[in-house]
Design a binder for these strands. Structure first.
Lengths: 339, 339
DNA sequence: AGTAAATATGTAAGCGCTTGCATTTGCAAT
DNA sequence: ATTGCAAATGCAAGCGCTTACATATTTACT
């Protein structure tokens, strides 16, 4: 009772090769369990029919999907794109497929997408940053889906993470800035709500100030979404303050580029009139004039390692280790001593 | 014989609500087919159990996955990222999920990914550009998977497409360049092999030259991968030629930015010593100094429309229409008349 | 040649859901 | 009260695959 000219199934292959479906299945999934002669027969039947296994059926029967889900805040920022590309290359090498969604920085969207990916049988999940509701972690645990957090390294959390110490990295940069003689600092940050990376970067600047005997309360902070235009607006706002800062540290390169452009537009020279720094070291940072002094993050390495660690967790039900990556300050021309 | 503390299934919900699985299923998929009182009972059982439907099972039974696959050449170029983001937002609104893969500009990888996505039951596919083996289109047809091609508008093809006329757009820009007085042109193109967009852009330049009585053979072309560094190298190469061009048209903004940077490094002023143009109008084009004169492409609109057209095709088995979008030249400062 | 062990293949029971069809229920019209 | 019909619900057959277990075949020895 086969449907007319329909997509071939395992059964069709089995009949054509004169074997049972079990043999065909084994042939496809674990060829060495089948003797060479039959294997050939099966394979040529597969070939002849143009058979492709039905994924849903396979997942359902095997309870494995060879799929890994990733949810990133946005596809439009090069940071995530680069790391994710490396992640995908690595898992692909190991026979997995990537499912990406972007949450547009909205926690409720992220939660929904997590559920969707799990329902789709994702064998593991890559998430950005630690900040999210506890019930999500409960759910993930209940469903027994291994999770790796990236872009943030915080050991001792419920979920293993790979990334860098955001606070530390930003502190090192702020330290540099202060040592150059800047006393009046400002910061343009991404929205820190539900975003541990942003929050920790702010903390880093404050800690550096503290360390140098500057009062952290004097740091003016603007929080804004991560777009070039927002950086520009924030800059305009900060520059209008009574105690105009001599250096502005930005939560990422995109914001910094916006600030640099706005400075230029307002006739201020960077860095002579004001210093500006970024974070991430994306392409934009090299291209903008003057080149951005920023923090280089090893995105590709992070993506790659996140992949292999996550796959370890999946395949050996290991607990998963946190991995700390180093960042380094890239000095270009947007930072100098105050005049 | 239920497994201990396992993930709840439809059956569990049905039992708890005291109805059949069919009713629960209807409740979830088409609530109005179930009377309000039972619906409530079912819903609270769902709630209480924390039930999430098993996707694979649903796909298998319904032969619909509410999944759309997209394969892009790379995630690392902002062009695709932006359009894709819009695409994903739109399909999400309509209840579909996006599956993205990137082929790294490799046709064989793309083919494999197409098969993977189809095997995963994708209800439709978004592909970039028309150029690919006929057997792939055969396969897609046999499997009855609707396909939309984007980033390229070529009517009358087997597959509907949405995008702009690459030849036309580039021709308009080249026309502008020539009208400004440039006689000696060069081009830095992406690899044209298997890439109709790149090929048509080259053609556009040649056609404009022809139109103005310039011999298209005099156009020196360097084909290179789409990275900033490649643009720089290509520039260096072109500038060393006997008949040094006065204007270089680039296949995209990334290459153009590479060229601009290299010019600067070599002590050439853009546009006074040499004019350079881009294509796409990504952020980079605004940020680089001097701003790039380039072709603006309505990426978000393209993504959005590709989504709705593809969903039409899926839901009403419509043949699918090709949609042509307009591009426009954005004049910034990298193009002027030759001196 | 005969036997046990190892290897190869077949049988069939699900996996969790949707849906065509059969049955029951509710309710308006007689 | 009946009857008739529409609306609501239940029944059960798959969807295409994997895999534990049973069976058949080969291999390696004695």
């Amino acid at each position: 009772m086969s449907k007319l000219r329909s997509v071939p199934t395992l059964d069709d292959v089995a009949k054509r090769a004169g074997v049972s479906t079990a043999t065909v299945s084994r042939c496809l999934n674990d060829p060495k369990r089948v003797v060479a002669t039959t294997r050939e027969r099966v394979m040529s039947a597969v070939e002849a029919l143009g058979y492709t296994p039905n994924f849903a059926a396979r997942v359902m029967a095997a309870k494995r999907s060879f799929t890994i889900g990733a949810i990133i805040p946005t596809m439009e920022n090069a940071i995530f794109a680069r790391g994710l590309q490396a992640f995908q290359e690595e898992i692909h090498k190991r026979g997995y497929t990537l499912l990406v969604s972007s949450s547009a920085y909205k926690p409720e969207v992220e939660e929904e997408q997590i559920r969707t990916l799990v329902a789709r049988g994702a064998d593991g999940l890559l998430l950005i940053g630690h900040d999210r509701q506890a019930r999500i972690y409960d759910y993930l645990e209940q469903q027994k889906v291994p999770v790796m957090v990236a872009w943030s390294f915080i050991p001792g959390k419920r979920t293993p993470s790979i990334g860098f110490d955001n606070r530390q990295a930003m502190m090192a940069l702020a330290d540099e800035v202060i040592k150059l003689g800047h006393q009046s600092l400002a910061m343009i940050s991404g929205m820190s709500q539900g975003n541990d990376r942003a929050r920790l970067r702010i903390q880093g600047v404050k800690d550096a100030m503290q360390m140098h005997g500057l009062s952290p309360e004097t740091l003016s902070i603007v929080e804004t979404p991560y777009e070039i235009e927002n950086g520009a607006e924030a800059f305009e706002h900060l520059i209008a303050e009574d105690n105009r800062p001599t250096a502005i540290l930005c939560g990422n390169d995109v914001l910094a580029v916006g600030a640099v452009r706005q400075a230029e537009k307002m006739g201020l020279r960077v860095p002579d009139d004001i210093s500006i720094t970024g974070f991430d070291d994306i392409e934009l940072a090299r291209i903008v004039q003057p080149g951005l002094t920023t923090i280089h993050v090893p995105h590709r390495e992070m993506g790659r390692k996140a992949a292999s660690e996550l796959i370890e967790m999946i395949e050996h039900s290991k607990p998963g280790q946190s991995i700390r990556l180093d960042t380094k300050i890239v000095s270009r021309h947007s930072l100098t001593c105050p005049h």
